[in-house]
Design a protein around this nucleic acid. Sequence first.
RNA 1: CGGGAUGUAGCGCAGUCAGGCCAGCGCACUACGUUCGGGACGUAGGGGUCGGGAGUUCGAAUCUCCCCAUCCCGACCA
Length: 491
Amino acid sequence: MADFLTKREENYAQWYNDLVIKADLAENSAVRGCMVIKPYGYAIWEKVQSELDRLFKATGHVNAYFPLFIPKSFFEKEADHVEGFAKECAVVTHYRLRKKEDGKGLEVDPGSKLEEELIIRPTSETIIWSTYRNWIQSYRDLPLLINQWANVVRWEMRTRLFLRTAEFLWQEGHTAHATKQEALEETMTIINLYAHFIQDFMGIPVLKGYKSETEKFAGAVDTYAIEALMQDGKALQAGTSHFLGQNFAKAFDVQFTDKSGKLEYVWSTSWGVSTRLMGALVMAHGDDNGLVIPPNLAPIQVVIIPIYKGDSQLNELASTALKIKADLEKQGLSVKYDDRDTHKPGFKFAEYELKGVPVRLAIGPRDLANGTIEVARRDTMSKEIINIDKTSEHLTKLMIDIQNNIFNKSLDFRNKNTYKVDSWDEFREAIEKRGGFILAHWDGTAETEEKIKNETRASIRIIPFDDPGEEGKCVYSGKPSGKRVVFARAY
RNA sequence: CGGGAUGUAGCGCAGUCAGGCCAGCGCACUACGUUCGGGACGUAGGGGUCGGGAGUUCGAAUCUCCCCAUCCCGACCA
């Protein structure tokens, strides 16, 4: 079964690529480094969007839209920010094409050179803060809690579908606050919101914590991140929330008058998740038969496949199948009845397994005679025959079971692949042989962090929030350390 | 930008070294028939400026030169 998919054990990277393409999520485009997100992949992204959007709005945020193009000078205003993004920016230098002299093809019209080049946004802090400046005068204008759904461009050398592409889709929140405390709370609110979404909807457990100085966002005072563990033992950063302090307010001169009449710089945050989450979905739950999509995220939650010979038999099945479909839809489930006559049942079974549809119902003449239906669940690949009258009731419960099972399986995997290590030898061995999250003491210096990264390719994924504190010695330098941090090789 | 490779049907490839009667194979596609409870089978079809240009030759996918594109390894990197 599924021998057209590379097995995870054989070549995990190849398995991932095969799966993304064969499950119709996305493909490489004619444009280097850019992908086409296909309808099925986009439908999953739309589920991600709609749930996150709901959560943002429930916490007081509103949506807006800012330009794709950013004047180069805006980027120069915040020094760390320039440093972080300058090397991967696409730049617009001209605004017109003309016919070539020989009449064949087009060329850039040199007469259309822009006075100031425009950067295609790799992130929108600069254009947004230059705008907020005009919106904020008084504490009465705060807080400003805005999100935008957008595409961004970061010119990557090596790209992989969903995980690293030159253009990707995301949401970016940009908030302005009167006090440091409030901005810090916002940063934390969002990282918790992301963790909730990824755990409860995507079914992927995450670790929450701070980024180290070297790993944090360019321009941030502090970056909070959530990290998930993929099945090959590598970590994937699933979302980040940044406390920007007054860095951008100062760079763009955004001041407000507080209640006492004093002029103050605004405190700010920014936060985002991207289509990279699609990669997390594939790599956290997928198996050798294809995708496994948690019910909360599945564009199609139930597929009904009729088993029949000839039109008359199909017609007999149709009324029963459509009634089941209607009943399930009344329960809020999204159901597809696949009565295509051009493909055989076996083909359809394999196809929906590949696409990760949580539940498959099969109904044939035998079921019709017995008053039964076959229920197959994708996560466990198990099948059972149930009384057809119980379908709706059974499936409502089954969806919850599947959602929980998928999460618990991932959590179990993460627990089995998280290790405490106390010596450099153990550290190296764990990274080389098993991967996973490594909890180790670190002396807190960027030098040590870099040396560890150079020697093992493992980086500090997070410094946990909820760390109990524990005295120990840095696994690399032997210097004293007050807590363990999480190391892993990462995507 | 350095090192290596590859461009032949929608996809994956053979043919190139030893130029001709060879443009071919698998999958996919179309039609018809038999099938249909785990990716069916048979028969018959359609589809190609052999990456582009110039040259050598009676004759070029094949040899020569130039160009273009893509991929891999390095460098670089949420």
